[in-house]
Design a protein around this nucleic acid. Sequence first.
DNA 1: ATATCTAACGTTATATCATAACAGTCAAGG
DNA 2: CCTTGACTGTTATGATATAACGTTAGATAT
Lengths: 165, 165
Amino acid sequence: MTNHGSAAGFCCADHSGAANAQAILAQAEAQARARGLRLTPVRRRTLEILLEAHGALGAYEVLELLAREGFGTQPPVAYRALNFLVENGLAHRIRRLNAFTACAHPSEEHSAAFLICAGCDSVTEAPARGVSDALAAAAEAAGFALERATIEAVGLCRICQEASA
Amino acid sequence: MTNHGSAAGFCCADHSGAANAQAILAQAEAQARARGLRLTPVRRRTLEILLEAHGALGAYEVLELLAREGFGTQPPVAYRALNFLVENGLAHRIRRLNAFTACAHPSEEHSAAFLICAGCDSVTEAPARGVSDALAAAAEAAGFALERATIEAVGLCRICQEASA
DNA sequence: ATATCTAACGTTATATCATAACAGTCAAGG
DNA sequence: CCTTGACTGTTATGATATAACGTTAGATAT
């Protein structure tokens, strides 16, 4: 668990290009306004950092970037901003990597599945309607009131498959 | 993240009763023999501890129990045993809780889904064929070679639903 | 305008989870 | 016997996360 985010450079995931990042950021702001959320400077900048990243970032990686830019230097600063983003559907926590990534589809109500490459640690957010439907059914059958779910798949992304072929 | 395992006592999940635990343990031993695994005393005892637990246990909780019984006292002792069990399908790691739980169906090839109660931290292993099928399809569509997956649902178990009704 | 309130921020300090690296032990096979 | 490799245990440290508290700043009501 030492190999977060930027570790492998440009490997697999079609990570958010700059243009896309701008669009997502705008969308996030619109949502924040609409829902009465306060997208403060730290929070906004944290989201930007995630959008600019090539992969998921650990909280301490985010913190270092924030600190360099004059925000607070201590862990709670990063954790609070990240938790805010996660709680409001603007980012996701990738537990397997102890890391965070910007949500690729902030507008839609969704519980996404993440495809985590064992070769390069890239993270792809996959649409998972079928998966969550199946999960909802399983929960229902167990009499369990489902709130939300974490779905993380480990395997090899296309590029790493080809590389090892 | 302070409230592991035994915290809530007898709450929700129909956790493994003693009889069931014996059966699972026997099954585990059979599997170990069949597959040439060494189910050593620490490993076996670790599995027993998980089977006896009312919920998922953190590594340090397991460690404390092992230490009391004359096994090693340092974290790697617990982590090694737990990782062995997880790698060989005898236990699961619940990442949301930073905890481990015995596998309820050690014989079958399965990628289970876990229903984690937000009220009492109980963990139920739900059969998830439909879920993993859907996930496999999503991975396939993304050109991702799926190896294994972690599926963790958060919500309220039946008992906690009734309690809060 | 200004008093008041609350959410957010930043800090110190500490808790919690996890692994690297190395030495000793022991059973299996040459 | 003695080597070999897997396992255990230790020390030491690293990595992740949160509790608690004082301060700041934006909103609200007067």
